[in-house]
């Protein structure tokens, strides 16, 4: 079983290599065909046509780090959901109720976050 299992991923790897090859060939072709005349004006950062002010990697406020925590929580939940989703029919109502409790607890967390007003983009 394990042999065919790994074989089935062979084509995925082949496609990834093919995709990378495609990009490499295209970039190579562009490098051969495209002109290269570099001027200092061309190499400046574009900012509405006037000279850029300050640095490009300037301070910026990342507003969504709390969303990111919530995302991780629910992403892990979805990892649990997938194996359950394929087998719950055999296990019957008991499995549905158990998953219902699990989802309910997480949904409660989302409700709490909502009432605490962290789901606001400020």
């Amino acid at each position: 079983m394990s042999e065919t299992y790994y074989q089935s991923y062979g084509i995925v790897v082949a496609l990834l290599i093919g995709g990378v090859g495609l990009v490499a060939v295209a970039f190579g072709a562009a490098r051969v065909v495209a002109p290269r005349r570099q001027l200092p004006e061309k190499l400046t950062t574009y900012e509405c046509g006037i000279d850029p002010v300050g640095e490009g990697w300037s301070q910026s406020q990342i507003r969504y780090y709390i969303y990111a925590f919530l995302f991780v929580i629910f992403d892990v939940e979805s990892v649990f959901l997938f194996p359950w989703a394929t087998t719950f029919e055999r296990l019957g109502m008991q499995a549905v109720v158990e998953m219902g409790i699990f989802v309910f607890i997480l949904a409660l967390g989302l409700l709490y976050a909502y009432r605490k007003k962290v789901l606001e983009w400020v």
Binding site: A26, F27, A29, A30, R31, V33, A34, P35, R36, R37, Q38, P40, K42, L43, T44, T45, Y46, E55, G56
Partner: peptide, 18 residues
């Protein structure tokens, strides 16, 4: 597109950019 000049700005991180 393939004939157009490929400009990498001086400030950019050229490897990640590519």
């Amino acid at each position: 597109f393939i004939q157009k000049e490929d400009i990498i700005p001086k400030a950019a991180d050229s490897w990640v950019f590519t």
